[in-house]
Amino acid sequence: MQQTVNKEIAKSRIYSLDILRGVVIILCVFLTAIPKGDYEYHFAHHADWYGITLIDFILPAFITMIGTSMAIGYKKGVNWLKLSKRTFLFILYGLIFTMIISWNLDFATLRFTGVLQLFAIIGVLTAIITRITQSPLKIMIIALFITSLYGGFVISFSEGCSESLPQPTCNPSQPIDSFIFGENHLYHQGKPGYDPEGLLVSLSALSNSLIGFAMGRILLNRKTGTVWKQLFIYGSIIVIFAFIWKEFLPFNKKIWTPSFSLLTAGATCLSLSFLYLIYDHFQISKQTSLLNPINFFLEGFGRNSFFNLFREFYP
């Protein structure tokens, strides 16, 4: 009986999603291993403010795939009790981890924000919003609306900034997050002028999760045989919108501008389209044994991504 259940689970898994998560984790491990002072490898270091590098894709890609996994895991409905428990634990673990890596038990200066807290907030908001509709197209439209609303607010706030663009010391993140959490409880106690995992950024990063959720809904219809085409079309459209937004707000991970959110989500969608075509549509891994060692390695990281990833993104 147990063997039958295991076979059904294995059959229902989307191999390409595990592989993509594995690729993201491997990139994370190797890129973060490059010394920060080695500027010859600029792609391995986060952009100082405007711009985007390879490592900047890691966190938003993972958030996008969290949305994808939620769509698959919640296909029969949300267990709100389990979701509430997971949210509480994510926030608790995030606070504990912050104390460990900063070696600081002073609650007066404990950072309340962080990557795991970001995951927790986005997870709850995604679950709530996707109760409205399960249509991939409508969910993506909602994601575009949210990131555009955020972008409009940032542009309006930044009219008095240099070049009328957000700057490290002139952007809405610092005053809003300081008001909510208190300056001493932000990233570097608010001294950089922004919080890369603050509440304001979380609202923008929500677009990544929603687009990922839409991707998951598309994957659930894989019997149609056109999944990879749908992912490719949606991913291409999202990337086009990213470059449209770039004309108003350049790529910026620190405050998660709409162009950054859409480019990273679109790139994740296109990558999944390519991998789905290879691994789930043509099932190339079953036709050749040459890739088995690589696939085994990537799949192992992809299925156990949480413990390999979350420590990498704390400043």
Rank of each mutant, 00 (worst) to 15 (best):
L17M: 14
D18L: 02
D18V: 03
D18F: 05
D18G: 05
D18P: 05
I19M: 13
L20T: 02
R21D: 13
R21L: 10
V23W: 01
V24R: 03
I25G: 01
I25E: 04
C28L: 13
C28G: 15
C28S: 07
C28Y: 02
C28T: 13
V29F: 13
V29N: 10
L31V: 08
T32Q: 06
T32K: 10
T32V: 06
A33Y: 09
A33I: 10
I34V: 15
I34G: 04
P35E: 12
P35R: 15
P35A: 08
K36R: 08
D38Y: 10
Y39I: 10
Y39A: 12
E40G: 15
E40W: 14
Y41M: 13
Y41H: 15
H42S: 12
F43R: 00
F43T: 00
F43Q: 06
A44W: 01
A44L: 12
H45P: 09
A47V: 07
A47N: 04
A47E: 09
W49L: 08
W49K: 05
W49N: 01
Y50D: 04
Y50Q: 10
L54G: 10
I55V: 15
D56V: 05
I58S: 11
I58E: 08
L59H: 06
L59R: 08
P60S: 03
P60E: 07
P60M: 01
F62K: 03
F62R: 00
I63C: 07
I63F: 06
T64H: 10
T64R: 10
I66E: 01
I66W: 00
I66R: 01
I66L: 14
T68C: 11
T68K: 02
A71I: 02
I72E: 11
I72T: 10
G73P: 14
K75M: 01
K75E: 05
K76W: 04
K76N: 12
G77E: 13
V78H: 09
V78A: 09
V78P: 12
N79Y: 04
N79T: 03
W80P: 08
K82E: 10
S84N: 07
S84D: 05
S84K: 11
R86A: 13
R86E: 08
R86P: 00
T87I: 07
F88A: 15
L89R: 06
L89H: 05
L89N: 06
F90A: 13
F90V: 12
Y93S: 15
G94S: 14
L95V: 09
F97Q: 08
F97E: 05
F97S: 07
T98D: 07
M99E: 15
M99P: 14
M99D: 01
I100V: 15
I100L: 13
I100C: 14
I101K: 11
I101R: 11
S102M: 12
W103Y: 05
W103C: 07
L105D: 15
L105I: 06
A108C: 03
